[in-house]
Design a protein around this nucleic acid. Structure first.
Lengths: 132, 132, 132, 132
DNA sequence: GTGGTCTAGACCACC
DNA sequence: GTGGTCTAGACCACG
């Protein structure tokens, strides 16, 4: 599973991890019984302290989305109802609006913003291919 | 100008104020030279401490969006960003990446994300026209 | 790093801290990656409130001179200024004008002012060499 | 007499006026019996409130440097001992150091800083000629 | 009335 | 231990 943190958002890191597990679950990217990355592995990958990952997993387990099996790992257990298209678009729209506002402040034209988004999408794809 | 706070988002209150001023600027809801609510008035309206509003306004002034005149008030200035090109590109890229990651979590295809960005851009333009 | 406050100058305390960090950076007294005193420690040393130090460090981070790592400390980064050329020229001009006005009040001739600037530049260079 | 304010220094405006009167006196630019600009005139010239000028003049009168004669104006009365060359250079050096520190942060080379100072000196001279 | 600074003390997130 | 945010309340400078 893919994780990414934003240290400037003000949203607590452990919450961002929870958000992303829930997001992946909601979109079907996480199947029942699937194993999550180990606490050590994820902490190392995100360059954060193990306590922080442990806290996120702990709250997920408390919420019943996940079950940790001692010595084996952490597994996704619950099937959450996937978000509908409308809700997804709304959440996404908020992230896009933030980019539009930045672009406006920086006097970047609409066409250039679109081109920039295409570039970043390509960069992400490249990285995913490399990681695979 | 209209303000609304979300105390559960984890996003610092002073940042939410900054975000909303920037958003209003981008959508044309704020005219050059227009006076923002006084620190005391906004603090009372949002039921938060004066210091929190003062901090938000202070950072906005630091960023060049706003100019505070001692004893008179705080005024919106449509100043262009004082940051250099490198930093601007970095900040804009970060905002776009956040949207890309969100889209990835929701399994939204690249083309749909681009289309969505175009829609939101149109919506902003519409709002700016209406405000004018 | 050494700090000293002047409570009678009228210059805000948090600004004096910023000034001194910038000065140390310019004179080589601060190495890239070096840790600054912790907020709590500096506040105690200067007998001021933690918030005041936090504000100074916060603005330094905003200006890119310093990077704070949550739970670890605040570190000096020899980053170049993120401001654009126009703003940089304006700020630098303002600093020079202040010296010119001072010189005018003291009836110091232009040539002497230039000579004095050369001397001070040499003094800074000397200090940087010594620090290295 | 020439006055100039720096609204960003943190030093109170009324104090800056006092400083400059004292500076002019110390350098011999103000002779015993000489008339200072009227409160209204100075306030207008500096674009500040008359109260602020009144406060500065009031404190100067309280200190005995100045005497206001009702309906006639404000006059310089005291002869303060002029600062010696050493002290003047030290005060000036401080202002120059601030400029050097800015220049360092902006990665402006020493030669360019010197050139810039020459330019600003010329600009000041031009303005003074125009005003005359 | 306006904005600006500082203190004291609290709570949170992260290492 | 570290930094980050917020509150309550004080005092100052400016119009």
């Amino acid at each position: 599973m893919y994780f990414e943190l934003n240290f400037k958002s003000g949203r607590p890191v452990y919450q961002q991890i929870i958000d992303q597990v829930k997001g992946a679950a909601a979109s079907g990217g996480l199947r029942r019984g699937e194993q999550l990355p180990s606490i050590r592995a994820l902490a190392e990958r995100l360059r954060i302290n193990r306590n922080t990952v442990a806290r996120a997993y702990g709250e997920l387990e408390h919420g019943g989305l996940v079950k940790s099996e001692h010595g084996r790992g952490v597994f996704f257990t619950a099937a959450t109802s996937p978000l509908n298209a409308r809700t997804r678009r709304e959440l996404l729209g908020r992230a896009l609006d933030a980019a539009i506002i930045e672009a406006h402040h920086f006097r970047v034209a609409d066409e250039e913003l679109l081109k920039l988004l295409q570039e970043r999408l390509k960069a992400f794809k490249r990285r995913r291919v490399e990681a695979a």
